[in-house]
Design a protein around this nucleic acid. Structure first.
Lengths: 148, 148
DNA sequence: TGACAGGTATCAAGGTATTGATGATGATCG
DNA sequence: CGATCATCATCAATACCTTGATACCTGTCA
């Protein structure tokens, strides 16, 4: 094969992300939420009345994925959806009180994970890491475009 | 909420990983493979006769997830599974010729993505990024343990 | 010999994601 | 006014991941 696995930067990146997702999962689980559900509620908290499609864009998933997720959350009474007054085709989505409570519970622990991650680094290192990650993201986007 | 989203290092990390996965997906798709399938074939290429459970560990997924994946790959004739001579309970897994061909096709393009990622950075930056990612991984593991 | 731990496989249920296709609605422009 | 375009919602098919539970086989230890 072209390149040994140990030379693949992508492996390290993916390992770190897997650990992040695992940590967030254990953080958010006592609130009865999964990570994507938590993410959706988080965005929803500061964007009341947003459409499902817009929420999907904010969470970086497809509208279909978000639709399934919102269906679950609606059935559990964590969000409410009601037709927009003018644009009848749009379902405005909002947090319920129960949704807000679940989000707060989850976010306390999720923020602790982020804090622990942040505390691992000195401020300069933190900035360095962000810059390197941003460059990696750009390079990967370009590579994918070049690929087809 | 506890911490603004823009301060969350985890967001940058996850964005980079999403871009990586998207790039790999477009790289590997012409070979008729998904990213996890490609990963499994990659490990299999250098570990002929490995068990499904061991393959799962190498790919950082649960044995169940790997079982589903291997079922698909077996049906498509990319891998073969046969009972171990002594440990009848173990299914030894091997690449078929078709599997090897698909892997080579996929790996050419996947390696190009890794190359593009690598080329974005000077050698010192590359090492720096790896070190930072390794520390992040450790910090996250500790945070998850502390959480429960 | 017999109980037990450890590795392996597999069924089941719940949740997330993709692409593709369809239908309904509002806005813009000829 | 009517065609076209963009946006939104949703059904369907496929694939992947998780936890929990069950069951088999094997080697070990009492």
């Amino acid at each position: 094969m072209g390149m040994p696995a140990s030379d693949r930067l992508g492996v390290d990146l993916h390992l770190a992300d897997q650990e992040l997702m695992a940590a967030k999962r254990t953080a958010v689980e006592p609130a009865g939420l999964t990570v994507p559900q938590y993410a959706a509620l988080f965005v929803l908290a500061e964007n009341a009345g947003i459409s499902g499609a817009a929420l999907a864009r904010a969470c970086q998933v497809t509208p279909q994925a978000m639709a399934v997720l919102l269906k679950l959350l609606t059935e559990r009474g964590l969000v409410e959806r009601a037709p927009h007054r003018w644009h009848r085709n749009v379902l405005e989505t909002r947090l319920t009180d129960r949704g807000r409570a679940a989000l707060e519970l989850a976010d306390d622990r999720a923020a602790a994970v982020e804090q622990a991650l942040s505390d691992e680094f000195a401020p300069a290192e933190r900035e360095q890491l962000r810059r390197l990650l941003a460059r990696a993201t750009d390079a990967l986007r370009r590579a994918a475009d070049a690929l087809d």
